[in-house]
Structures are given as structure tokens and as C-alpha cells.
């Protein structure tokens, strides 16, 4: 079951050591599925807050937020996966991750847990998949008889859309 945010944050901050971060995943829920991100990318989890919309952005970039004086963009994972939008509720969270020295917030339905998934429990992504999001999948992790979809954070953020976006901006 989902823990509350503070206990997950405790977990996050406890693990400073590179070695212990290996094979650890931060998991969250979007729609019916559970997803995992390598813990090394995750900085913190914050509650939903006011997002300032920025024009001329791809639809999955919801805008920017003020994270203690730092302005960071926010991406809606639902929209990114081309899932139907859903009203934000009190479970909706922003997961702040850091990829290539850029901080970005990801809106997810619900945060779950921090879990260990050993390498031998990770299967390669399914070869044939019709879902839009499949190209962001890094592997399928098995934990407690359940399957977590492990995401490639880099691809999630920097994909062909970004190139389009850049060409549009210029």
C-alpha cells in the first residue's frame, strides 16, 4: 500500500550511498499500473501546487512551479503516456527528478514506495507493444508477484518531442 510522503522521503534521504542506491526504485501509480524510476534520479516529492502555464509548450508540459525559489517545469505523466486526463486530487503528487542537471517535476496519480528489485528480477521490455508509452520502458521489474514498469527517465524527458519543441522554438 501507499505510504505517506514523509516516510518515503525519509527513505530517500537515508540512502546517500551510491551502492545502496543501486537496484532501488521509486514507485508510483499512474492509472492502473505501478511504475518505477531509479532512485538516483529522484530528488523529492511535493504535494500538488499551483502550476503557471507556459505558452507554446507540448501538451504534456503543464507549466512551471516555484520550488523554493527555483523555477522548474512540470510534466504530466498521464498526458505523456497519452492516457485520459483526470482531475488532480489530494493523492496527486509532483515527483521532482534530476536528469542531466535539470530538475523537472512529474505529476503522478499517487506515490507508492521505495523498493529493491535485483537485476535478475528485471525482464527486458516487451518487444511488441501497442501502448504509446512503451518506448519509455527500460524493463519490467518483478516484486512481490507484481510487475512494476521501470521507466527510462532520460527518454521520458528527452525524446523526439523535445527535438520538435526545440525546432518550433527556434
Amino acid at each position: 500500500m501507499a505510504k505517506d510522503i514523509t516516510s518515503i522521503e525519509d527513505d530517500l534521504y537515508d540512502e546517500d550511498d551510491e551502492d545502496t542506491q543501486k537496484n532501488r526504485y521509486f514507485t508510483f501509480q499512474v492509472g492502473d499500473e505501478e511504475y518505477g524510476l531509479e532512485i538516483i534520479h529522484v530528488i523529492e516529492v511535493i504535494g500538488m501546487q499551483k502550476i503557471t502555464e507556459v505558452p507554446d509548450m507540448p501538451d504534456f508540459v503543464k507549466g512551471v512551479i516555484n520550488l523554493r525559489g527555483q523555477v522548474i517545469p512540470v510534466m504530466d505523466v498521464r498526458t505523456r503516456f497519452k492516457m485520459a486526463p483526470r482531475e488532480y486530487d489530494d493523492r496527486t503528487c509532483i515527483v521532482v527528478i534530476n536528469i542531466r542537471d535539470t530538475a523537472i517535476g512529474m505529476v503522478v496519480d499517487k506515490v507508492s514506495d521505495v523498493i529493491d528489485i535485483p537485476e535478475d528480477q528485471v525482464d527486458p521490455p516487451p518487444k511488441i507493444s501497442r501502448s504509446v508509452g512503451s518506448r519509455y520502458i527500460k524493463g519490467m521489474g518483478k516484486a512481490d508477484d507484481k510487475v512494476k514498469i521501470l521507466l527510462d527517465a532520460g527518454k521520458l524527458l528527452y525524446d523526439e518531442e523535445l527535438q520538435q519543441m526545440e525546432s518550433k522554438v527556434d
Binding site: P55, V61, V64, I104
Partner: peptide, 16 residues
């Protein structure tokens, strides 16, 4: 605005 957002036409930045 964040690097991720890049330059946006009509905006020169933001303030808090």
C-alpha cells in the same frame, strides 16, 4: 525558465 523549457517566444523569463 528552465533549460528544459528553452526559449519561448513572447516571454523573456519569469519572476516569483
Amino acid at each position: 525558465l528552465s533549460n528544459y523549457v528553452g526559449n519561448v517566444k513572447g516571454l523573456s523569463g519569469c519572476t516569483i
